[in-house]
Amino acid sequence: MNLPPFDPARFEEEWAADRDVFENLAANGDNAAVARPIDVSFKGSADALAALEDAAEELGFTVLGDETSKGGARWLFLERSQPTDETSIRALTELCLRIEAHFGLEYDGWGCVAETGMKH
Rank of each mutant, 00 (worst) to 15 (best):
R19A: 14
V21F: 14
F22M: 12
F22Q: 11
F22E: 12
F22A: 10
N24S: 15
N24Q: 14
N24W: 15
L25T: 04
L25K: 06
A26D: 14
A26Q: 14
A27N: 13
A27D: 13
N28S: 13
N28Y: 08
N28P: 03
G29I: 08
N31C: 10
A32P: 09
A32Y: 01
A32C: 05
A33Y: 01
A33R: 13
A33K: 11
A33N: 11
V34M: 13
A35E: 14
A35G: 13
A35P: 14
R36E: 09
R36L: 08
R36W: 07
I38K: 06
I38P: 03
D39K: 11
D39V: 12
V40N: 09
S41E: 13
S41W: 07
K43T: 10
G44H: 02
S45N: 04
S45F: 01
S45C: 05
A46T: 02
A46H: 03
A46V: 03
A48I: 01
A48H: 02
A48T: 01
L49H: 06
L49V: 06
A50N: 09
A50M: 06
A50S: 12
A50L: 09
A51Q: 07
A51Y: 00
L52V: 03
L52Q: 01
E53P: 02
D54I: 01
D54S: 06
A55E: 11
A56E: 05
A56S: 09
A56W: 01
E57V: 07
E57C: 02
E57R: 11
E57I: 05
E58G: 05
E58H: 01
L59H: 03
L59Q: 07
G60H: 03
G60I: 05
G60M: 06
F61P: 01
F61C: 00
T62A: 15
T62F: 12
V63Q: 07
V63K: 08
L64S: 07
L64V: 11
G65D: 06
G65N: 07
G65V: 05
D66P: 00
E67Q: 07
T68H: 00
T68F: 05
S69G: 14
S69P: 07
S69I: 08
K70V: 09
G71F: 06
G72Y: 02
G72I: 06
A73V: 10
A73S: 15
A73N: 15
R74I: 00
R74L: 04
W75L: 12
L76Q: 00
L76K: 00
L76Y: 00
F77L: 10
F77I: 09
F77C: 06
F77T: 11
L78D: 03
L78T: 00
